[in-house]
Design a protein around this nucleic acid. Sequence first.
DNA 1: GATGAATGAGATTTCATTCAT
DNA 2: TATGAATGAAATCTCATTCAT
Lengths: 207, 207, 207, 207
Amino acid sequence: MRKRIVKNPEVRQKEILNAAQKLFEEKGYENTPVEAIIKAADIAKGTFYYYFKTKKDVLTTLVENIGAEMEAHFSSIVANENLTALKKLKMMIRGTEKEAIVQSTVMEIIHKPENRELQEKLNIYSLEVIAPLLVQVLEQGYKEGVFNKIASLESIQLILAGSQFILESGLFELSSQKRMAYLKALQTMFENEVGAKSGSLSFISKK
Amino acid sequence: MRKRIVKNPEVRQKEILNAAQKLFEEKGYENTPVEAIIKAADIAKGTFYYYFKTKKDVLTTLVENIGAEMEAHFSSIVANENLTALKKLKMMIRGTEKEAIVQSTVMEIIHKPENRELQEKLNIYSLEVIAPLLVQVLEQGYKEGVFNKIASLESIQLILAGSQFILESGLFELSSQKRMAYLKALQTMFENEVGAKSGSLSFISKK
Amino acid sequence: MRKRIVKNPEVRQKEILNAAQKLFEEKGYENTPVEAIIKAADIAKGTFYYYFKTKKDVLTTLVENIGAEMEAHFSSIVANENLTALKKLKMMIRGTEKEAIVQSTVMEIIHKPENRELQEKLNIYSLEVIAPLLVQVLEQGYKEGVFNKIASLESIQLILAGSQFILESGLFELSSQKRMAYLKALQTMFENEVGAKSGSLSFISKK
Amino acid sequence: MRKRIVKNPEVRQKEILNAAQKLFEEKGYENTPVEAIIKAADIAKGTFYYYFKTKKDVLTTLVENIGAEMEAHFSSIVANENLTALKKLKMMIRGTEKEAIVQSTVMEIIHKPENRELQEKLNIYSLEVIAPLLVQVLEQGYKEGVFNKIASLESIQLILAGSQFILESGLFELSSQKRMAYLKALQTMFENEVGAKSGSLSFISKK
DNA sequence: GATGAATGAGATTTCATTCAT
DNA sequence: TATGAATGAAATCTCATTCAT
């Protein structure tokens, strides 16, 4: 029998989650047997089911955590008083170098078609949490005079949802030309929605 | 042992599809074991796999058929030379009474979150097939002078994808107020994209 | 974490036994997880295993206690110098009103087929402890002249074991007629074994 | 993947049963994991659960089969017109050399304490099937004049049940002396019940 | 003495899929 | 073409028991 290793439950749960995340990342959710998670986390099967009701439960928790990270990340951008609305928007849409790295892990997982489920949950999260933050930035932009309309939360969500489905779901194979065309469309729609000068949001479609 | 019942292959395949569609509708794709399909179709397991390579293959075929119906339906609208672009747009977006019925079956299936898979495939189909038809109508509208821009296929797809995810995925519980707000946003975006007079596409958000 | 509640060890053990007995009674030994016992006794798992080596150990202790009660009960009957052998025999086999109540709890537990284990252990106990007491009474009866043979311990045990298996195991569904037939057979066998007049032990089969 | 081996379902079931019986015999029911049966029968796990609902189901079927064998065996003895009642009784109780071998397999399984469950079922079977056959023989003996009473089915069942519990359950460790004492008691009880001359059933307790 | 996280063996279930007939 | 027994991977579930704190 394996040596009993007692740990702080939260730490243990975190470890299981980390192991699972790594595996989901590498193989996808469907292709990761619970057995693999157990081995990676170096725990007993019983322990797994002691911490999580089902395998899907791991996924849910994972997404919730990732979502919370995203929220923290974007919130901090929005809260930063030293940035202009445009700067913020750019950071939120394109990511900065540093943040891009943070994102990469998350996004790699998300962008695999096997991870549809994860993806979908995260998309929902984006719409519910990130979209309102975007709106805040747009309002700031309106105050700053770079935008002359305030886009509704709904329209932002529609655009976000659309771009997630098309650009990030991995359900479409997009040539870089195709992708660019979508980004251009996105840029235009955004500019329209906020009443920004044409081209002012060109960072959206800049490679 | 069951009596060996030989049937016209196409008939047999249709029977399996019908049985499967009904079950997917009721229970969702994931919650419908092949076992259930073969019972409903009154065939042996082997027969199922004689007609379909995999369970997913049934889904794919089903979606293709539904998609083809959708395409036929929308194509006929688009091809109808007696209709104005606005009429066509309205019919395509809202459906006429008759078509609404046709759609209902399809839509019932689609709107359940259990049917993620079915839904997604159909959404893709919509973007690939219906969106171009919509663009054709928009072009007709441009010629007719009701629109003063030609929206790009990409922007139409983005909008369509967004509204499908938010309004039709069943992933969000939408109060009728919320739904209305989204429809309004959709209307505005559409009007912006085609350069139509504000309110000219009010049918989108009319209850 | 639960507050650490320290109690008198004997009290604690008694509480665990009581909780277990109640559960075994209701659900049977096999269908009572240790989990249930600790909840009922409001203790931690570790505490359970501090007091009892195994789950079966609880059962054993329980049976020993019940057995000791039974022994005390029957011993007191046997030791009573004011009773004739026949009276004693009657009390031991039929029970008096008062004793019947005492027995009821025990017997309720015993008579369920789920409680095979408990039952079996108690049956063994009966054979080892009660049977010798019965023999003592038979010897008294011999001295009193109501019996003209002294039955061997072995024959008494065989009869006792048989009647326990058939009449009290709960493994057979017995109509009252059937049960009566067995009791009659039992009476006759007993009378034969002790050389009593036919009918002198009729209390065995009296309803 | 293992080569698919299709067999007549009855044959396959028999094979599983045989494998299980052998293992139960060697290790006992509780100590035989389903996994072991699967390996021994060289089948897939799915196949096991395709043929048997649960592990216990195997046991039940096994006992039913054994019971049927027993019945056939004893029935043939009873039906044999060339044998006297005493001969038959002897064969049924002691077994002939040949039959003893047949029995040995069965009995080895049964006599292990781990197999309580199997044992109990078989005991019940004995009482329901074998006891009536015994009564038939006793009736034959009555006609032949060797017995002068006809024992009731109930009394035979009580005796049988008692001897099974004490002598064959494995719940008691019996010295050969002790065993002999029980057999003697049994002999006497039997003689009493059928009104046979004392000693006429001495084969019961002959070593 | 007391706690509850951790263990791991094993039974079941679920199911898509394969293949000998 | 059609059949259904057979497969096996994987998810769960159930639990008695252990042990570091």
